[in-house]
């Protein structure tokens, strides 16, 4: 489905954030950050190192509370309560690791089961194949290359077909072929009406954004 010809008509989730500020002790990370990202859109969060891109992502996904301001998840005219946000989102972030002692399929199976995904085994295998990993490979994740690690994190994020995707430096450690594949994946998720927040410093990834929030640091 092309976004240009058939604008997204389904439910989808819109994220609105207003006047967000975050401070750790005396250090102000950012202040007065506002924005909105709707289904079928990609919000690119950009800024220099230490400007708070990852912090903003953790606030938007509900992992950390802002010092000031508010975040709303809207579905149609209704608001989704904060404790239910996790049911609707998938996330890839450098600071979030998978279980090193488990293999790729065991990792995905675990996340599928705790999320209550139906037909978990088939979905896990399909998700691994989608990112180019072999579901039958039994090597523990600690033996993976950094690129394979990143692909597995992406497989985990899209496993339950979430309506909202947070991608924090998703192309980190991917080779050029992997980055091409990632671009296609982001485009297909966007065209499927997903709401995507992309935190990046990569000029190529910034181009994927349909709107942008620039943090100054």
């Amino acid at each position: 489905m092309s976004r240009g010809i058939f604008p997204f008509m389904g439910g989808g989730i819109t994220i609105e954030f207003e006047d967000l500020a975050k401070r750790f002790d005396m250090r102000v990370v950012f202040r007065s950050v506002s924005g909105r990202v709707a289904p079928g859109e990609v919000l690119a969060v950009t800024g220099p190192n230490g400007s708070g891109k990852s912090t903003l992502v953790t606030i938007l996904c509900g992992l950390v509370r802002a010092t000031r301001g508010r975040v709303l998840y809207r579905e149609g005219s209704g608001e989704i309560p904060r404790e239910s946000w996790r049911d609707h989102l998938g996330i890839v972030a450098p600071a979030m690791s998978l279980y090193e002692e488990l293999d790729a399929l065991e990792n995905l199976r675990f996340f599928a089961l705790v999320r209550g995904v139906d037909d978990a085994e088939t979905r896990c295998r399909a998700s691994l194949e989608r990112v180019g990993l072999d579901p039958d490979r039994t090597t523990p994740v600690r033996g993976f290359s950094t690129g394979m690690h990143q692909r597995l994190k992406i497989a985990q994020a899209v496993l339950h077909d979430p309506q909202v995707l947070f991608l924090d430096e998703p192309g980190a450690n991917l080779d050029p072929a992997g980055q091409d594949w990632l671009e296609k994946l982001v485009a297909s998720e966007r065209d499927a009406g997903k709401t995507i927040v992309l935190a990046t410093n990569d000029l190529r990834e910034m181009e994927w954004g349909t709107s942008r929030v620039a943090l100054s640091g």
Partner: peptide, 16 residues
């Protein structure tokens, strides 16, 4: 310590 807690928080309900 192994930085898996954040993903677990975002995947599973607290009482689970």
């Amino acid at each position: 310590d192994s930085h898996t807690a954040a993903l677990l928080r975002l995947s599973a309900r607290p009482l689970v």
